[in-house]
Design a binder for these strands. Sequence first.
DNA 1: AAGCCGTGGGC
DNA 2: TGCCCAAGGCT
Length: 359
Amino acid sequence: MEPDELARSMLGWYDRHRRVLPWRAPAGRTADPYHVWLSEIMLQQTTVVTVGPYFQELLRRWPTVADLAAADLDAVLHAWAGLGYYARARNLHKCARVVADGHGGRFPDNEQELRQLPGIGAYTAAAVAAIAFDRRATVLDGNVERVMARLFAVEEPLPASKEKLRALADTITPDRRPGDYAQAVMDLGATVCTPRKPKCPRCPWHDGCAARAAGIAESLPRKTPKAEKPTRRGTAFWLLNPEGAVLLRRRPESGLLGGMIEVPSGDWLERPAQSLAAASVQAPFAASWRLLPGLVRHTFTHFHLELQVAAARLGAGDGDGWMRADGIWVPVDRLSEHAVPTVMRKVVRHALGSIGVPE
DNA sequence: AAGCCGTGGGC
DNA sequence: TGCCCAAGGCT
């Protein structure tokens, strides 16, 4: 099939199966660039279903890019807590400030300038240019990679084949309705040309698909195997003061869970401390630590984590030295007011489940 | 340029 | 249960 015929059949399929999404404009209109940008950042490596409520909440709190630029970073991280990849939230805030302060509150309307903004890479620049400004731009996300690998039966594995897939995708991107086309291919990948059990009979490109013809659609795209995840272990320290508040602290600005709030913990190593006494060297405060039964397990992108939880409660006889402990004291019923990532919510749940909620 | 960076759902 | 996957970007 010719490129223009492929694009035409894809747009026809889109017109018949268009999905209603919170950030998507009504048919025939282009969406607000702020909405498109916000949704695209949130959708990076994250499913539509997960993003939905977070998108609505952020848009409610910060209706315009100027509102977001004026927000405190802590408030943005709090609103983002649970979504993961927290560098996205930090870059989101940074980008809002650049757009508000340096671009008069308007997003650039072309890929090249969008690409310069924090948190906007090749994919997002193309997506915003196409969807918000209807510029011809070739979006290449996981969906498009899969659709192209199948349409052209590319057997070379990812990520080595990525630029080849991008070139193939570019040959089909139309000059007319490029924004709808971009969303169409991604929708197709999400609902029809799925990783497992693709619904080939429902595909507008059924007749032109080389992988389907060869009977290898479900096996594409091939991927080079990734390294095995190691397991790291550590100790989290759950410390209650005489007033029933828990000691938390803010993590460093960059790196894992950057800028987020944590239950203080020692290093996470593949060879952990052998005893509670040894682990307690890294405790945030000298106290009578006792080990809670069980472990908190969590898996990050590149390692498994097993945390044991040591707990202590300070009483009137412990003096007031705790007031100068490094961190913040938060009443346990007000934890939800802070930017606590999921792994640390698991630690909180584990501690509260083991020792109960104090008065 | 390959490793780092979360989380939840599906099977 | 363990693994795969999701509208990737940064360094």
